[in-house]
Design a protein around this nucleic acid. Structure first.
Length: 558
RNA sequence: GCGCCUGUAGCUCAGUAGGAUAGAGCAACGGCCUUCUAAGCCGUGUGCCAGAGGUUCGAAUCCUCUCAGGCGCACCA
């Protein structure tokens, strides 16, 4: 258990013991114990911890908040604890001031745990599935996928650090209508390249990549497919181009620092019979009915405002149907305890009905959550530009990474919480990449590395390491920041908000830069120097760990 | 019409399990390199927290309504 958590538990116990004591002695009459919530006050004068419990009890106890607070404080036993003093303030806050230098413990913790500092066992033994991006495999990925990629990959890392056994998963939409369209587009380009004068389908994929696929295909295969009927040829073209696209996606994503554990094919749900099984299960539960030749799901029974089609009148299952089977596979066949998907805001309408359907097949929908990420709006010179994959006007993910860099791209797209809407001006991003906050954090790391390199020879091994030499407020503040890291990860997981880690990294870097300017490491007092080297080494380690979660490099020189 | 997200400093955003005086970065201005990386630090100013009601000892945070922007509301995915 980390120092911060240890102290929090201790303070909570002291409060609840005091409360019990007060009740037993008859000083306070309480029927239901209130939830104990400790907060870390914004103002340092209010101590390290504060509780508002006395202000939650007047109704039950029929006593004034100040009186309750005084009674509680009188019952608190703080001997052998981290608490230095307790104070009642304002309308009835109880503020706890910790004994000086409790922060030193964190330096030993970081030194001991190193690259694992910040990890916890909270979710040990549980399987976590994170599905993200899952872009249509009908063309190259665009800039919009960059945000989902950063959010998903980093949230997966966060979950991993809380003890989960994490699987990163890409759902390949290789079935359904868009594949039909894909085939039509490929076939049209094929025939055009073969010299036929035929029109391109109106709603086809107009991107240059489709034509390029067919050009390469023809180079390799000549005209052996020319005399086939389109119906014979399309599956061959689709298979060819889909494989090409998936290979490209895989390598593009690896270049973006994302490696998936599972690439899950939608088509496999049809092939394995998973879809039929799910239909049967839903039917048995009485959640389906037929109408106008289609099979419907009673989504209204789960709070939706209308029912949804599972099987179309033409006999083909909908995407929704496949998605139910897909998530059943995750929970039931593969035994995941928790499944999270990252979806763009344009799919949010799908969440409620999928949760409903999962409940219908007996899955606890509370273990399934969707992080809805607001869409990135692309600006060009301050004007809104539409992104459309079908028209091939999107900015490719690879171009973005080439121009802005992997580190800056991942950092930038994980800087704001997923539900913030944000505008992305490509010109501005490239221009700004020089004072992108990612460099601020990396710079702190490089600075530390530089100092450590130079201190290596000057350190006196004979002098014992004595943390108590660290008393400056910048030093104490830095240690406090380090002690908050484990909790920051837990909160990020709990709130499904990986952007907290990015902002933590910035705050930590800021605490270091302040320290750097206030305190020199190279000082004539060798014992002080040694203690400060220990402090910056711990800082370096935590920056590394944080950047590691973000998938951003921690350069030793800049 | 219905639903989801958002509205906080000039700009981009934190803060939203209710808490004490609402915070950062950018931009502006003024300082700091004859010992460790100035991609840095220190300082100065700015807010009807979109608006109106309500709940509460206490509301940026919870509830209701209104306004504004984004996104949905298919036998597309």
């Amino acid at each position: 258990m980390y120092i911060r958590e240890k102290i929090t538990e201790q303070v909570k116990k002291i409060i609840s013991d005091a409360l019990n004591q007060a009740v037993e002695s008859g000083a306070l009459a309480i029927e239901t114990m209130p939830d104990l919530f400790l907060e870390i006050p914004r103002e340092k004068e209010h101590g390290e911890y504060s509780t508002n419990i006395a202000m939650q009890l007047p109704k039950q106890t029929k006593k004034a908040p100040r009186f309750i607070a005084e009674t509680l404080v009188a019952n608190m036993k703080t001997a052998d604890s981290y608490i230095e003093s307790i104070e009642i303030a304002g309308p009835g806050f109880i503020n706890f001031k910790l004994k000086p230098y409790w922060q030193y413990a964190v330096l030993a913790e970081v030194a001991a745990m190193k690259a694992d500092y910040g990890r916890s066992q909270k979710n040990a033994g549980k399987k976590f599935n994170l599905e993200f991006i899952s872009a249509n495999p009908t063309g190259p990925m665009h800039m919009g996928n960059a945000r989902g990629g950063a959010i998903g990959d980093i949230l997966a890392a966060v979950a991993d650090w809380t003890g989960y056994d994490v699987t990163r998963e890409f759902y390949i939409n290789d079935a359904g209508n868009q594949i039909v369209k894909f085939g039509d587009s490929l076939d049209a380009r094929y025939r055009q390249l073969m010299g036929e004068d035929i029109p391109f389908p109106e709603d086809g994929y107009q991107g240059e990549d489709i034509t390029e696929h067919m050009r390469v295909f023809i180079d390799a295969n000549g005209d052996v497919h020319r005399l086939m009927t389109p119906e014979e040829r399309k599956p061959i073209l689709i298979d060819y181009a889909l494989n090409k696209n998936l290979t490209k996606m895989r390598s593009d994503l690896e270049a973006y620092g994302i490696r998936y554990d599972v690439w899950f094919s939608e088509q496999s749900l049809y092939d394995s019979g998973a879809i039929e099984k799910t239909i049967e299960l839903l039917g048995k539960g009485g959640f389906t009915y037929e109408q106008e030749g289609a099979l419907w799901f009673k989504a209204t029974a789960f709070g939706s405002d209308k029912d949804d089609v599972l099987i179309r009148a033409n006999g083909l299952p909908t995407y929704f149907m496949a998605d139910i089977a897909y998530h059943m596979d995750k929970f039931v066949n593969r035994g995941f305890n928790r499944c999270i998907n990252v979806w763009g805001a344009d799919h949010h309408g799908h969440v409620a009905r999928l949760k409903g359907a999962l409940s219908a097949v007996g899955i606890d929908a509370a273990n399934f959550d969707v992080v809805i990420m607001q869409l990135v709006r692309l600006l060009r010179n301050g004007e809104v530009a539409r992104m459309s994959k079908r028209q091939g006007k999107a900015i490719a993910l690879t171009d973005l990474i080439d121009e802005v860099g992997v580190d800056a791209t991942r950092f930038f797209f994980n800087l704001r919480s997923p539900d913030s809407h944000f505008d992305f001006d490509l010109g501005l991003a490239i221009e700004q990449s020089n004072d992108n906050p990612v460099f601020y954090v990396q710079y702190a790391h490089a600075r530390i590395c530089s100092i450590i390199r130079q201190m290596a020879e000057e350190l006196d091994q004979a002098i014992p390491l004595d943390y108590s030499r660290l008393v400056e407020k910048e030093e104490l503040n830095l240690m406090e920041m380090l002690s908050n890291f484990p909790d920051e990860i837990l909160t990020a997981e709990d709130k499904l908000d990986p952007s907290r880690i990015t902002r933590y990294a910035i705050d930590l870097a800021a605490a270091f830069h302040s320290f750097y300017n206030a305190c020199h490491v190279r000082v004539s007092d060798k014992a002080l120097m040694k203690a400060r080297v220990a402090l910056i080494e711990a800082t370096k380690q935590v920056i590394q760990n944080a950047l590691g979660i973000l998938g951003v490099s921690a350069p030793e020189r800049m």
